[in-house]
């Protein structure tokens, strides 16, 4: 998958960004006040869900690179009788 090299191609507007960051900050602070009941030891770790959400998103994009590399073909792949093989 091609990287967007252009730093100007921001997909998020500044206002939305600040809002998102503010809410995320509040959610981190809320962890001090609110007890999260956990079924698993890992889940009981402070900020487990925050960290997992962030890292999982990166992992999905990383994993999708692999799919893009291995499993994508030209858009008309199936339209030709035997594809590119």
């Amino acid at each position: 998958m091609a990287k967007s090299k252009n730093p100007k191609s921001k997909l998020t507007p500044a206002l939305g960004l600040r809002l998102l960051a503010a809410v995320a900050g509040l959610l981190v602070l809320a962890e001090i006040l609110v007890h999260r009941h956990a079924y698993f030891a890992l889940e009981a770790m402070p900020l487990f869900f925050a960290g997992f959400g962030f890292l999982a998103f990166l992992a999905i994009i990383l994993g999708s690179r692999l799919v893009a590399k291995l499993a994508t073909r030209p858009v008309d792949y199936y339209d030709t009788p035997e594809g590119d093989a």
Binding site: K10, A21, A50, G53, L55, F57
Partner: peptide
């Protein structure tokens, strides 16, 4: 937390210009 930080993951990647087009 899960949802908002997943959103931050997107912001992080798009600011660095590596969110796939």
């Amino acid at each position: 937390q899960l949802l908002f930080f997943a959103g931050l993951g997107f912001v992080f990647l798009s600011l660095r210009g590596v969110y796939p087009t």
